[in-house]
Nucleic acid binder design. Structure first.
Lengths: 110, 110
DNA sequence: TTCATTAATCGTAACATTGCAATAAACAAA
DNA sequence: TTTGTTTATTGCAATGTTACGATTAATGAA
């Protein structure tokens, strides 16, 4: 049916999935990487950096913004985007806890 | 258009996105968590554990299997699934490198 | 062989995602 | 005000994802 049955899962599982989904598209990965690479805000050159149309980039930025991973501030005619350090940190805590579950239980089976 | 323009991005960015997408659904998160929790293989009770229909679970298992994160072995009438430790490890290396990019550059801006 | 059990596959409906052209909105400069 | 620049929004087409009923395949038990 195309819609996820979120009520079948725990809040934690849904949160993990939401964060993971944010990185489930290479354009959003590229945006985040570019933000870390230039080590400051990105003001306008994202469309040139990534080869997608302006409305498409805008849409990906909106998704990352809605999740709180990035924040934008208006600077004249352009908008400057950067990572939201606190939300990034808490996202990492959630994902790391999940990805590190193999270190708690390390069953060699099969 | 619904299709990702992978050719616009690096191999690394596409790999990160593929792994992240695997965890972009709570059912697949739940499957992985259950595999770690019981600390061994899961033989058949996944449909009861998670509240989705058998074909749906089978589909999610297939995705995780295609990515190499889990592996299944036939045991009589049932199939036993468990994490593939080596592929899990290399997936973690890729995702951790991405998620830890904030520790390399820690620009306070905006 | 026949029956029961379990998992995979097929087919399909409903909804989501991706991408972009066109347009609108917001602002600075002339 | 008008013009140019930049980003957001709208609308839509193409494709992908999710979910499950029905069926098939494979195996063990009777």
């Amino acid at each position: 049916m195309g819609l996820i049955k979120s009520e079948k899962f725990t809040k934690e599982q849904n949160t993990i999935a939401l964060f993971a989904k944010a990185f489930g598209h290479p354009a959003r990965v590229a945006i985040i990487q570019h933000l870390f690479e230039i080590n400051s805000c990105v003001c306008g050159d994202l469309v040139n950096q990534i080869g997608l149309a302006q409305p498409t980039i805008s849409q990906h930025l909106k998704e990352l913004k809605t999740l709180g991973l990035i924040k934008g501030s208006v600077e004249g005619t352009s908008v400057c985007y950067c990572i939201d350090p606190e939300n990034w940190k808490s996202m990492k805590t959630v994902l790391f806890a999940f990805l590190n579950e193999d270190t708690i239980n390390h069953g060699d089976c099969c």
